Computed example of a mutant assay.
Amino acid sequence: MRLGIDVGSVRIGVARSDPAGILATPLETVRRGKGDLDRIAELVAEHEAVEVIVGLPTSLSGRSGPAAAQARRFAEALAGRLSQLLPDGGVRLYDERLTTVTAEAELRRSGVRGKARRQVVDQAAAAVLLQAALDGERLTGRPPGEIVRGSS
């Protein structure tokens, strides 16, 4: 089982895969800030995750900006926090271009509006991200994205 993480400045969307790593579904929204790494570590342990995929927000041109740097720092801190639960390579960064836009569109199409959509959009974006990583791995036969080394 794998977790997908969509890191925002206020909220963190979390999704999970099925045990076979075929289908991603929304799981939870975690408030960003004090205790967020601990909550994600609890989810890793609770769901017996073997890998965490963190979204790397890259521009359409492929360039990394401030949001990408923030996601990279978060992923490094998370890898450090999870070092006892996951072996090296257990946290990866994966290109998340347009995941929130895709999640918003899917929620709109399914009739989820207003406050209800804001409450789940981060989880939905994490599910889009994780599904893309799972599909990419299945197509290429290679693990998704890049391995993140932990920082303390």
Rank of each mutant, 00 (worst) to 15 (best):
R39N: 09
R39K: 15
I40D: 01
I40Q: 09
A41C: 08
A41I: 05
A41L: 08
A41P: 02
A41S: 11
A41W: 07
E42K: 11
E42R: 14
E42W: 08
E42L: 11
L43N: 07
L43D: 05
L43S: 07
L43E: 01
L43W: 07
L43Q: 06
V44A: 08
V44D: 07
V44Q: 06
V44Y: 07
V44K: 06
V44L: 07
A45G: 11
A45Y: 00
A45T: 12
E46R: 15
E46W: 12
E46S: 11
H47T: 03
H47Y: 15
E48G: 09
E48F: 00
E48I: 02
A49L: 04
A49T: 01
A49W: 10
A49I: 10
A49V: 07
A49E: 05
A49Q: 09
V50L: 10
V50K: 12
V50H: 13
V50G: 14
E51N: 08
E51V: 09
E51P: 03
E51K: 05
V52C: 13
V52P: 09
I53F: 04
V54P: 04
V54H: 07
V54C: 13
G55P: 02
G55D: 04
G55S: 00
G55F: 05
G55W: 02
G55K: 03
G55Q: 01
L56A: 10
L56V: 05
L56R: 12
L56D: 09
P57D: 01
P57C: 06
P57Q: 05
T58I: 15
T58F: 11
T58W: 02
T58M: 13
T58P: 01
S59L: 15
S59K: 12
S59E: 09
S59M: 12
L60T: 08
L60C: 00
L60E: 08
S61L: 12
S61I: 03
G62I: 04
G62A: 03
G62R: 07
R63E: 14
R63L: 12
R63I: 02
S64Y: 08
S64W: 00
G65R: 05
G65M: 03
P66L: 09
P66Q: 13
P66V: 10
A67G: 11
A67I: 01
A68Y: 04
A68D: 03
A68F: 01
A69E: 15
A69N: 11
Q70H: 12
Q70E: 15
Q70P: 00
Q70Y: 13
A71Q: 02
A71L: 08
A71M: 03
R72I: 09
R72Q: 15
R72K: 13
R72V: 06
R72G: 01
R73N: 12
R73V: 14
R73D: 14
R73W: 09
F74W: 11
F74Q: 04
A75P: 00
E76L: 09
E76A: 15
E76Y: 09
A77C: 10
A77K: 13
A77Q: 15
A77R: 15
L78G: 09
L78Y: 06
A79C: 10
A79W: 05
A79T: 10
R81A: 11
R81V: 04
R81P: 01
R81L: 01
R81H: 13
L82E: 07
L82D: 03
L82C: 06
S83F: 06
S83T: 11
S83L: 06
S83R: 14
S83D: 11
Q84T: 13
Q84I: 06
L85F: 02
L85C: 06
